Simulated scan of single mutants.
Amino acid sequence: IPETVHADRGTSMTSKKVSQLLIDPGVTRSHSRPRVSNDNPYSESQFKTTKYVADYPERFDSLAHAREWFDAFTAYYNHEHRHSGIGFHTPASVHFGTADEIRYQRAVTLAEAYAQHPERFGRRPRPPEIPQTAWINDPAKRREPARQAS
C-alpha cells in the first residue's frame, strides 16, 4: 500500500468511493491545485503516457485485470521507456546510477560515427545532458515582469 497517491482533481479521483478506499488503509491523498494543469508535471507526464500507450485497454474487465496491466506498464515505464526530460534514459537507470556510464557509451558511439562519416552530421553529435536537479517551476527560468517606467 503506498503512503501517498497524487492525482488531478478529476471526478473519479475526488469521488467519495475513491476517497474512502484510500482513507481506510491510511493512504494520504494529494491533489493538484484547482485549474493548474502542470502542478505536478511528473504525474501529468506519466498519466499522459499511460493513456496513449498502444495497449491501453478500452476498459478493464476486473480489478485483477487492472492490477495486472498496471504492474506491467509500471515496469515498462520505469525500466524500458526512455524519457526525454532525463536525457533519454529510463528512471531506473537514473535512480540506480547507471545513466552516466550509458551516456558515456553513447558519446563514444556518436564520436565513432562522426569520425567515420562527418558528412552525415551538421555538427559533432553529443548525447543529451542528464539534469542534476528537477524543478516544477525553475526559478532560474522564471521571467521577471517588465518594470514600469516612472
Rank of each mutant, 00 (worst) to 15 (best):
V5H: 04
V5K: 03
V5R: 04
H6L: 14
H6C: 08
A7C: 09
D8C: 02
R9T: 01
R9Q: 05
G10S: 04
T11I: 09
T11H: 03
M13L: 15
M13Q: 10
M13S: 11
T14P: 01
S15E: 00
K16H: 15
V18M: 12
S19V: 06
S19Q: 12
Q20C: 09
L21D: 03
L22T: 00
L22C: 04
I23Q: 14
I23N: 11
I23W: 11
I23H: 12
P25W: 03
G26E: 05
V27C: 06
V27P: 02
V27W: 02
R29G: 02
R29M: 12
R29C: 07
S30L: 04
H31P: 00
R33N: 11
N40M: 02
N40W: 01
Y42M: 13
E44P: 07
S45L: 06
Q46K: 10
Q46T: 15
Q46V: 14
K48W: 10
K51I: 05
Y52P: 04
V53P: 07
A54C: 01
A54Y: 02
D55L: 03
D55T: 08
D55N: 10
D55S: 08
E58R: 15
F60Y: 09
D61Q: 15
L63C: 08
H65Q: 06
H65W: 01
H65T: 03
A66M: 07
R67C: 04
R67V: 08
W69M: 11
W69K: 11
W69T: 05
W69E: 10
D71P: 07
D71G: 13
D71M: 11
T74E: 15
A75M: 08
Y77D: 12
H79Q: 14
H79K: 12
E80A: 02
E80V: 05
E80Q: 08
H81G: 02
R82L: 15
R82Q: 13
H83R: 09
H83I: 11
G87E: 07
H89S: 09
T90H: 01
P91E: 06
P91Q: 05
P91N: 05
A92M: 14
S93Q: 15
V94F: 00
V94C: 02
H95M: 10
H95C: 06
H95N: 12
F96Y: 15
T98I: 09
A99S: 05
D100N: 12
I102A: 11
I102V: 15
R103P: 00
Q105T: 11
R106F: 05
R106A: 14
V108G: 01
T109F: 10
L110V: 05
L110N: 03
A111K: 13
E112F: 03
E112P: 00
A115H: 07
A115T: 08
H117K: 14
P118H: 09
E119L: 09
E119S: 12
G122C: 10
P125Y: 06
P125C: 07
P127C: 00
E129H: 11
I130P: 00
P131G: 01
P131T: 01
